[in-house]
Amino acid sequence: MSGAEGASVADSVTAGRRLLLVHAHPDDETIMTGGTIAKYLAEGAQVLVVTFTLGEEGEVIGDEWAQLVADGGADQLGGFRIFELTTALAALSPPGEPGRVLRPRFLGGAGHFRDSGMAGSPSAEHPRALAQAPFGEPVALLADILTEFAPQVVVTYDRDGTYGHPDHVMVHQVTAAALPIARERLGTDVKVYESVTEHSALESGLAAASGRVPEGWRPPHDGELPRYPDEVITAAVDVSSVYERKVAALAAHATQVTVAPSGTEYALSNNILTPIGAVEHFVQVDGPRPDVPGRETDLFAGLD
């Protein structure tokens, strides 16, 4: 087989790959899986990011957009975060290919479900809050998207929603309920991964950043940032080739995220320094498991 023929075979394989990622709010897609999105887009896969809410209850960084907030403000933050998500997804997309720029897709349409805010907050009682939705409604909507897109790989949160946010937990639960419906309709299986942070990668990133903590930021206290033991990680995806796209996408979420001058760390409104990883980690929780030694480096391993 010639080099050209080999390339065409590889292209045809990656072009048939379909990756679906579910997230609760704009910025989650980049924080948790931005490099993975950019990597698979660059390789020619079809990628779909489904966002459940507009993130109306987010805490705004700085003064420029501070009056957009829901609590005592204009309650226009959700609309602005559509713009941020659109910009971030474009940053993650292959440059110079306007036909392949990833666009947002919201569950039920933009604004259908509202950001619930943290547990126990008044926003969690809002009649449109995701936490208030009859469970079957988002399940049915996501099952329809899964059936339409027919992904081979789905990425979601763990059962704790990474850090316990009610909307993250709901995304996990809705995805778990929608997948069997889609599987039955499609007659195919799906590999399902939970996006997590590896303990040693987090510690290495924090150690590397110890001498360059921006003014006003602080390192996390012990156990403050969620992480998983190294031994439970089943997949590690190297995103170093698209690292700059991930950083640009993080910067696009400027109401929620500040990127350090080094381009190697970020902070949310709490000003807690967090490394920007060049490897993203996952735990496979469902679907066919490839017979490969050690961790997978490709979420589609065993499917091509």
Rank of each mutant, 00 (worst) to 15 (best):
G3M: 12
A4P: 08
S8N: 12
A10Q: 12
T14C: 13
R17D: 11
L19E: 11
L20D: 03
L20G: 01
H23K: 10
A24K: 00
D27Y: 05
E29G: 03
M32T: 11
M32V: 10
T33K: 09
T33W: 07
G34Y: 05
G34P: 01
G35Y: 02
I37L: 11
I37Y: 10
K39D: 14
G44M: 06
Q46C: 09
V47I: 08
L48C: 12
V49M: 04
F52Y: 10
L54E: 12
L54I: 09
G55Y: 04
E56T: 03
G58F: 03
G58P: 06
W65G: 00
Q67R: 14
A70M: 10
G73M: 05
D75N: 15
I82T: 13
T86C: 09
L89R: 10
A90R: 13
S93G: 04
V101K: 10
R103E: 12
F106V: 03
L107Q: 00
G111Y: 04
S116M: 05
M118R: 12
A119E: 11
P122L: 02
S123N: 12
A124F: 08
E125N: 11
H126G: 04
H126M: 08
P127M: 02
A129N: 11
A133R: 03
G136W: 13
G136I: 08
E137W: 07
P138V: 09
T147V: 06
E148A: 08
A150L: 00
Q152I: 08
V153A: 05
V155S: 06
V155G: 06
V155Q: 03
D158Y: 01
R159G: 02
D160W: 10
G161S: 05
Y163Q: 01
H168E: 01
I181M: 13
I181Q: 15
A182I: 03
R183K: 14
G187M: 07
G187N: 06
T188F: 07
T188H: 11
D189L: 10
K191Q: 15
V192N: 01
V196Y: 02
V196F: 01
V196N: 04
T197L: 15
E203D: 14
A207D: 15
A208R: 13
A209L: 15
A209Q: 07
G211L: 02
R212G: 02
P214S: 01
P220F: 02
H221P: 02
G223E: 02
G223F: 02
V232R: 11
A235S: 07
D238P: 05
V239W: 00
V242Y: 01
Y243L: 03
R245L: 04
R245S: 14
K246T: 02
A248P: 05
A249S: 12
A249V: 06
A254W: 06
A254S: 13
T258S: 13
S262A: 07
G263L: 00
G263H: 01
E265D: 15
L268Q: 09
L268Y: 09
S269Y: 13
T274R: 14
V279S: 06
H281C: 05
F282P: 04
D286P: 00
G287V: 09
P288E: 12
P290W: 09
V292S: 12
P293Y: 04
E296A: 15
E296C: 15
T297E: 13
F300A: 05
F300K: 05
F300I: 02
A301K: 03
G302V: 03
G302C: 01
D304H: 12
D304R: 12
